[in-house]
Design a binder for these strands. Structure first.
Length: 607
RNA sequence: GUCCCCGUAGCUCAAUUGGAUAGAGCGCUAGCCUCCGGAGCUAGAGGUUACAGGUUCGACUCCUGUCGGGGAUACCA
């Protein structure tokens, strides 16, 4: 149980004689807005006053009188219109810190009834290289999977690859017309990427790309001949796709041949990002199940014919009902997604299924979930964990000068390169100032650049509010000061170096932690912040917001900074105080490391 | 046309879901290396929360309207 839950329970007990349902009022116990008000504050007296027909401050008095302070609370103060300000007893905090240090869960108990989650994230179209647009789903999903697992839930991660769509028609067409046998033999992955881009560029005059340009302006940029050719190529691609779906032997064999290459392309990225999946069941996996899904929908009277297509009407006069079969007989992604939900429910019996997919698909998921519910899949909680788009400086979807989206691989390369540059630069500055700098081996240096560069990219994204769009900016994404991964990684390395410097072994602090003394305000503030870990993770998990973790980390770093400035550790006045402060240091490092790990970001001991 | 999201410091973003004097980073200004790592720390300037009403003890947050931006709108997934 985290600090907030403990206090809310106390208030729940105190309120139970006053109102019929104390829960919503107990929920008004919150972290203090400002440290000067205390550690936590209860805002329930004001709203309760109206219900009870009394003065808010009188109600606050009554609540305080009924409150069992136990050994954890100082006598509360009533302030302003009726705020109840709470301050935890310092000796109680000290005991909790000591407890927290023991074991590797940092005081976070596994959840009482664990739930089973299926998390669907990343899910790229494998026919084309991954670009920045895929980053958010991939790392938000990965982070949520790590977080829910750490909290004790059963998590099944599933990468629902787009391996059966029109993009494969483009690859098939391109392979048949433009392949370079020699390139295919030496580097098939690169050759497939080249083929895809070539076909995409050919079709461009008639196909809306990632640039979001409207068809009118787009058409004006091309000659009639180019448009006609684009139209022809697009039709041929569609026919290739149709042949693949119809079981054409040649296209089937080619698909079998392409898949490992496509997988290799994306797996390289996943490996580098340290993102892993329990399952990778793409659309092709569900293809054989689709006719059965349709029959079932029709048998239940859910799917009806309309303009030659098969739709599922959900609302009166809905101009855009979900479609499960096109007039040409092809299935849609709604059909495929229904099969997917059914398969997952039957196979894994999850309590909840999370779709980490961008906000533009909100309508699709709203409809999909409604159809699934009516179809009988109503026991599982289906949730669209949506996120905002990544925009360019012009507030339009991100793109490079050339017009295509920035490829993920290049972004990561650039991040690592910049990390290396910054490293050398800061080290030279320190040198000229006559300061000691750690001498890293070439291997260590490479590892540091990788860890810092990739960490920067992930943290920049995860620290954003999940639901808002955000403007992509190289400098921001690769920034290494302020609230960034680098700052946290650096803070971690610095704490470690204290142990190094003092010739201290951290291990005893985790098995036989010494008593903590929190007489200095900065010690107390740091301890309180450390103990709020469980609270932060709870928020991050219930709201599916990794930014709650980065926010907590930033607060922790500031608390630590205050402590570090004001409280000598190795030169503490007494051996006991030194032990206590080393305990706080070690805990800080461990909490930073754990949180970064939950974000999929690594740490190094020296940098 | 209809529906959804958004508008907060010069820029990029927060604000514990209705709480006390709206906070950070970057940038700018001024300080801090005989003191455990300066990728750091301390302080300062910077705001009519797009606009106008309303709801109440209290509104960036909820409601109505206006302006502005973005997105989704059966046969791409």
């Amino acid at each position: 149980m985290n600090l907030l839950q403990i206090l809310q329970r106390k208030f729940h007990d105190a309120l139970s004689g006053l109102v019929d349902d104390p829960a919503p009022y107990a929920g008004l116990v919150k972290p203090a807005q400002d440290p000067k008000f205390g550690d936590y504050q209860a805002n329930c007296a004001m709203s309760l006053a109206k219900v009870l027909g009394k003065q808010p401050r009188v109600v606050a008095q009554e609540i305080v009188q009924r409150l069992d302070l136990g050994d954890l609370l100082e006598p509360p103060e009533i302030a302003g219109p009726g705020f109840i300000n709470l301050r935890l007893r310092t000796d109680w905090l000290a005991a909790r810190v000591q407890e927290m240090a023991r074991g590797d869960r940092l005081g976070v108990e596994p959840v009482k009834p664990p739930r089973t989650y299926v998390i669907d994230y990343s899910s790229p179209n494998v026919a084309k290289p991954m670009h920045v647009g895929h980053l958010r789903s991939t790392i938000i999903g990965d982070s949520l999977a790590r977080l829910l697992r750490f909290l004790g839930h059963h998590v099944i991660s599933d990468n629902h690859l787009g391996d059966w769509g029109t993009q494969f028609g483009m690859l098939l067409y391109g392979y048949k017309h433009f392949r370079d046998e020699e390139a295919l033999n030496t580097d098939p992955v690169r050759e497939m990427a080249r083929i895809y881009i070539k076909v995409r560029d050919l079709i461009k005059p008639v196909e809306a790309g990632e640039d979001g340009e409207d068809s009118g302006t787009r058409l004006k940029r091309y000659t009639d001949a180019e448009v006609a050719e684009a139209s022809r190529v697009r039709d041929e691609c569609r026919q290739e796709t149709a042949r693949l779906h119809a079981g054409d032997a040649v296209n089937g064999r080619l698909w079998e041949m392409f898949m490992p290459w496509c997988r290799q392309e994306i797996d390289t990225i996943y490996e580098r990002l340290d993102v892993h999946f329990d399952h990778t069941l793409g659309e092709s996996f569900y293809n054989p199940m689709l006719p059965g899904v349709l029959r079932s929908l029709q048998a239940k009277g859910l799917a009806v014919e309309s303009k030659g297509a098969l739709i599922v009407p959900l609302r009166e006069n809905d101009p855009t009902p979900p479609m499960v079969r096109k007039k040409d007989g092809a299935f849609t992604y709604t059909t495929s997604d229904l099969a997917t939900i059914q398969y997952r429910v039957e196979t894994w019996r999850p309590d909840a299924m999370l779709y980490v997919v961008d906000a533009r698909q909100a309508l699709h998921f709203k409809n999909l979930f409604e159809v699934a519910r009516r179809w009988g899949l109503d026991k599982v909680a289906l949730e669209h964990v949506s996120f905002g788009s990544v925009l360019g400086p012009d507030r339009k979807p991100i793109k490079t000068r050339e017009g295509g989206a920035i490829e993920l691989g290049s972004l990561l390369d650039e991040a690592v390169k910049r990390a290396a540059e910054t490293y050398h630069q800061t080290r030279e500055e320190r040198r000229t100032q006559g300061k000691d700098v750690p001498e890293l081996s070439a291997a260590e240096l490479k590892a540091v650049s990788e860890v810092v560069g990739l960490g920067a990219v992930k943290y920049a994204d995860l620290s954003q509010n999940r639901t808002s769009d955000y403007v992509f900016d190289w400098d921001k994404m690769l920034a290494m000061d302020g609230n960034t991964a680098t700052y946290m990684q650096y803070a971690y390395a610095r704490v470690r170096s204290i142990f190094q410097e003092g010739g201290e072994d951290a291990r005893p602090f985790r098995t036989q932690p010494p008593a903590a003394t929190l007489n200095e305000p900065h010690e107390r503030a740091l301890a309180l912040q450390l103990l709020r870990l469980g609270e932060a993770l709870e928020v991050a998990a219930t709201e599916y917001k990794p930014s709650a973790i980065t926010g907590y980390l930033w607060d922790l770093a500031k608390s630590y900074s205050g402590f570090y400035q004001n409280c000598p550790v190795l030169k503490a006045e007494t051996p006991e105080l030194r032990q206590s402060r080393l305990l706080l240091c070690d805990l800080t490092a461990r909490v930073i490391q754990r949180n970064l790990q939950l974000l999929g970001i690594r740490t190094v001991e020296r940098m």
